[in-house]
Structure formats: C-alpha cells, structure tokens
Amino acid sequence: MVKDGAQLYTMEGIAAGLIMLLTTYLVLGSTSVYTPGDTHLTDMQLEQVGSDILKIMDTPANHTSKSSLRILIDNTDTQGFNDSFSGTYFNSPNTRAAVTAFGSSRIRIKTTIWFRNQTSNAVEKYTLYSSPDDIANPAAEGPGVRVTRLVHLDARPPGLQALDFEAWESMRDKPQEVLVEVLMWQV
C-alpha cells in the first residue's frame, strides 16, 4: 500500500539517484583521453632492433657460407647465441655509446626454438639460451618484446641430445623449418 510519508527511499528515487551518480562519474571520467600506444614506443624500438639482429644473423656473409644463426642452432651453441646476439651486435664494442631509450648493457634475452614433433606433429619447443636474470625478476622493466624468425635446418642438431634429450627425441632428423623466438627485456 502506498503511503504518503517522507519517501526518501522509494525505488524510483533510488534509481534516479543511481543514474545521476553514474552520469557524474562518466562525465568526469571522459576528460581523460588514453592513448595506449604512447606507452610502448620504447618497446617498438627494441622490437625493431631485435628483428634486425635476427635478420642479420640469419644472412650469410657470402654466397658459399651458412648464416651464423644457422650454425649456432646446428651446433646448439647456447652461450654462443648470447655472445653473438647481445655481445657482437647489441653491445658491439666498436660502436660508440648512444644515448638511447634502452641502454645496451641492460638487455636480457631468452631464446626458444619451436619445432614439430615427428610423431604427433604437435608444436614443441626447447630453450636454446636463457638469461640468468629471469623476466619475472622485479628489476625487469616492462613486459618485454618478442621477435621471431623461421630458420631452415638440414637435420636435427646433434648437440641437442645433451641439452634437451626429450626435445631431441621428438624432433625429426630431416630437413625442416624451426621458429627461433627471442624474448628481450630490460632490467
């Protein structure tokens, strides 16, 4: 039964009040314009650099030799990959120090090789190189960037057996394409 007392809490009043509060919140919140792209320019630069380094590593120096990336994977040279990617290219001692958004010595990488299982055809992976500083380290700045490149192998890398026996068993010993994925982050 409807009464005519001080009806401060009628359903309609509550609804009206909520609408007004919501309106006020939305109006005040609309004054901020978010551009998510502005916060990732440094990541784009890092991604471009990583992509370039992978491309350079995968290009032979002359038309009779193999690329250094191919040799590193064939030899399962874990430290050699980091020495080449980070040491030779990123931190080249012959280039002058550049004032950049990312200091060359603050970069860490983790390299994963993706391949297909010879039996199930499922995509599997093994870690070629992992930095001692994990990306989950609180000192890491930002989520990191990922660069990839498809590389042709003539056969299963023989050194993989010592590094990751399960991956070596799963990988077919035939010509194949593998995906080299390098995760890069700053500390």
């Binding site: 409807v2 005519d4 309609e12 009043g13 007004m20 309106t23």
Partner: peptide, 17 residues
C-alpha cells in the same frame, strides 16, 4: 502528493542523461 517520480519522467530523464 506522495513524492514519487512518474515513470514517464524517469524515462525522459534517462534519455536526457
């Protein structure tokens, strides 16, 4: 005079908001 907002007022007010 029971201090209740009519439904049609609410509808109009909502559209305006």
């Amino acid at each position: 005079d029971s201090a209740q907002l009519p439904v049609d007022f609410l509808v109009g007010f909502t559209i305006f908001i």
